[in-house]
């Protein structure tokens, strides 16, 4: 079931184990996400999907194993350095900067690659002004791209739920990631919103960003992803094309054991 897209490996988890006290959240996981694909990570509640994201973004350090990105080991790196290397994410529970405008939220992401220090900023030096200008242009462009270009000045917390999820995506894209991690981006969306989200993810991928997606909505997962991996109790129980995985007996059993609501 390998070589569906044939691209080179962008992200590789090698025998990753993550223990929290007695709980083994991730158990000897191997995972490979290839350049240019949309890869979905699915599994019942508590399977360890979000933990994988936290391991990849440096929030947790694995108990054992190695995470490599673009051919280099990234576990042990600081979280902001991981972001700079090209991994960005959204959160299952939205974590925007609520009392900042949509534009400012995205600018924080764009600042990840800005270089002026406090002297340039405090004295208002020319290259700082240029960077600010470019950052703002990029932020506006991204807000348009995700479809909330008309709400730049609104505070994040005043945006409707679906737009908050879009804003999180824009903020993540502003860090110019090679790999974008989306943690249940469709949660709480109605069917129409889900359709436009699906198109958005497609466009992100077409623009050259590889996507690793956690999602409970099977319809969306099956339509959009190039490959799917299924986690259960921290172990990978299946991997392959959506259609292959869908009919895998082990997967069906895992879901029947702990049925995921397709909300």
């Amino acid at each position: 079931m390998s070589d569906v897209t044939g691209g080179r490996a962008l992200l590789a988890l090698d025998q990753i184990t993550m223990r929290f006290g007695g709980v083994v959240a991730i158990d000897g996981l191997d995972l490979e996400v290839r350049q240019g694909e949309i890869f979905a990570l699915i599994g019942p509640n508590g399977a360890g999907k979000t933990t994988v994201f936290n391991l990849v973004t440096g929030v947790y350090q694995p108990t054992a194993g190695r995470v490599a990105f673009d051919g280099r080991k990234i576990n042990g790196m600081k979280r902001f350095s991981v972001t700079k290397r090209g991994i960005a994410r959204t959160f299952q529970n939205i974590r925007l900067f609520h009392n900042m405008s949509a534009l400012e939220n995205v600018l924080v992401g764009a600042d990840a690659h800005h270089r002026t220090g406090f002297i340039g900023a405090g004295l208002g030096l020319p290259w700082h002004r240029r960077e600010e200008r470019e950052g703002r242009a990029l932020a506006r462009e991204l807000l348009d791209f995700v479809g909330i270009g008309h709400r730049t000045e609104e505070w994040a917390k005043n945006l409707p739920y679906g737009d908050q999820r879009r804003l999180e995506i824009a903020r993540a894209l502003a860090t110019k990631p090679k790999l974008l991690l989306l943690d249940e981006p469709a949660a709480g969306m109605n069917p129409a919103e889900k359709r436009s989200l699906q198109q958005l993810i497609r466009r992100i991928c077409d623009a050259g960003t590889t996507v690793l997606l956690i999602e409970h909505d099977m319809g969306l997962v099956m339509e959009i992803s190039d490959r799917v991996a299924v986690l259960d109790f921290g172990q990978k129980i299946a991997e392959g094309r959506p259609a292959e995985v869908q009919n895998n007996p082990a997967v069906i059993e895992a879901y029947l054991g702990a049925p995921a609501d397709a909300s």
Binding site: T83, R95, G109, A112
Partner: peptide, 8 residues
């Protein structure tokens, strides 16, 4: 935490 993950 979110700030740090966004590259700050």
């Amino acid at each position: 935490d979110a700030a740090e993950i966004m590259g700050v």
